[in-house]
Design a protein around this nucleic acid. Structure first.
Length: 425
RNA sequence: GGAGAGUUGGCAGAGUGGUUGAAUGCGGCGGUCUUGAAAACCGUUAAGGAUGCAAGUCCUUCCGGGGUUCGAAUCCCUGACUCUCCGCCA
């Protein structure tokens, strides 16, 4: 959520920011409502001050035995007037809040201006030693490999739950679990994160806090009976750990990492992009979340991206880093790096991670603040998160890049102590 | 699922309709004393909003929402959560 005060003071900057993000220009609408709001506040507070003053006098008058009938009548009127203005104010505030909650974050100045994914900028790429985009044997895709090696069973997954619910079997299940553990261990031991194992059903407040609601409501599963949402990412419960809290400056940066299954309806997105693992309703993800001081958040974004990259380097998977342009940034993000891994069978790059800085956008929604040591002032923190990483997309690249001409899959060295086997055949 | 009790400031805990934003204790911060520290003593210690250059002034908030009243932390309704007992159960 953007700060009204900031919009009031920098209307043109915000206007341009919204345009760059392909969003509707709501600046004037916001400013009008804000004006109305402030004038109503001035009126109603004046009346309230009067009410308070008189109310304090009444016990004294009563004690002195004076007749208070006239005052009561007058105060009744003041009370009615206050109620009326309060109602108006509430309506204005609700409209304002409604617009603000549906207005995206604006991008950091370092983000390239652009319309769509085509304008994203490749920042760097990393290829394993001896890697080539040319293969001297026929590459199988992850679905064929999964079937042949009896490690992925999409048909039975569909029988059990419906399309988009992958079933891992045998060494496939073990490999998945190994991957999760390897990623968690790396972030804990090498990158200094604290592990979290969060609830996977959350309440509405939490979904609002991280910005999935109201804008993305259609893409969320919802358990009506209990008013709970299966999480689309561990970002939601982990960021909400500190909702409505004032953190100590000395505790920042807080770095959490957690594994969770992720649930997404992906409403209306069936088709060629959705075969196998490319788009699923349930997948596993290890998520990194940071709570940072504003002045450090962009350094933290770089290091978080590196943390995710280190996983891919260790797994020997080719990847590239894209800086998303303004038009392709998600609703809440001010800056974002996508990490894409290479799929030889698809012959393209697949998004496996997104590392974003939300600045104060989520913190303002979720009311996450910290107190400065010296000035004792309270400020919003910056929140960041990044996948580290999503195993389903990663699994595509992992299987395809490690296949042999005979159609076996070599388990990457770093995973072997987790899997207990070196080859899947 | 059934019955009951509760939710007050960083924490503990008073307060059942009228200067209560809220006693008291603990904790935190500042000071006096001390070579330093402890103890003791004194002071201070919520967040948000409106207005103002500022100092300040004012408003809101005692779990959330609604109501009664001239006036609500206090009374009524409702929702969430916590605890105890019973039932059920990984």
């Amino acid at each position: 959520m953007l700060d009204v005060k900031f919009i009031r003071e920098n209307p043109e900057l915000v206007r341009q920011g919204l345009l760059n993000k392909n969003a509707k220009d709501v600046v004037d609408e916001i400013l009008q409502l804000d004006d109305k709001r402030r004038s109503l506040i001035a009126n109603v507070e004046e009346l309230k001050a009067k009410k308070n003053k008189v109310s304090a006098e009444i016990p004294k008058l009563k004690k002195a035995g004076q007749d208070t009938t006239a005052i009561f009548a007058e105060m009744k009127q003041v009370g009615d007037e206050i109620a009326k203005l309060d109602n108006e104010l509430k309506e204005v505030e609700e409209s304002l809040e409604n617009i603000l909650r549906n207005t995206p974050n604006i991008a950091h100045h370092s983000v390239p201006v652009g319309k769509s994914a085509e304008d994203n900028v490749e920042v760097r790429r990393w290829l394993p030693d001896g890697f080539s985009f040319e293969y001297d044997f026929k590459i199988l895709d992850h679905i064929e490999l999964g079937k042949k090696l009896h490690i992925l069973d999409f048909e039975r997954g569909t029988k059990i739950s419906g399309s988009g619910f992958p079933l891992y079997t045998g060494k496939g299940a073990t490999l998945e679990r190994a991957l999760i553990n390897f990623m968690l261990d790396t972030h804990l031991k090498n990158h200094g994160y604290t592990e979290i194992l969060p609830p996977v059903l959350v309440n509405r407040e939490s979904m609002k806090g991280t910005g999935q609601i109201p804008k993305m409501e259609e893409d969320m599963y919802f358990i009506e009976k209990d008013g709970l949402y299966p999480i689309p990412t561990a970002e939601v419960p982990i960021t909400n750990i500190h909702r409505d809290e004032i953190l100590s400056e000395k505790d920042l940066t807080i770095k959490y990492v957690g594994y969770s299954p992720c649930f997404r309806r992906e409403a209306g997105s069936y088709g060629k992009e959705s075969k196998g693992f490319l788009r699923v309703h349930q997948f596993n993800k290890v998520e990194m979340v940071k709570f940072s001081k504003p002045e450090n958040s962009y350094d933290e974004l770089e290091s978080m991206t590196n943390d995710a990259e280190n996983i891919l380097k260790a797994l020997n998977i080719p990847y590239r880093i894209l800086m998303l342009c303004t038009g392709d940034l998600s609703f809440s993000a001010a800056k974002c790096y996508d990490i894409e891994t290479w799929s030889p069978a698809e012959n393209k790059w697949l998004e496996a991670s997104s590392c974003s800085n939300f600045e104060t956008f989520q913190a303002r929604r979720a009311n996450i603040r910290f107190r400065r040591e010296d000035s004792k002032k309270v400020e919003f923190v910056h929140t960041l998160n990044g996948s580290g990483l999503a195993t389903s997309r990663l699994m595509v690249s992992l299987l395809e890049n490690n296949q042999t001409p005979e159609g076996k899959v070599i388990v990457p060295k770093v995973l072997q102590k987790y899997t207990g086997f070196e080859v899947i055949d």
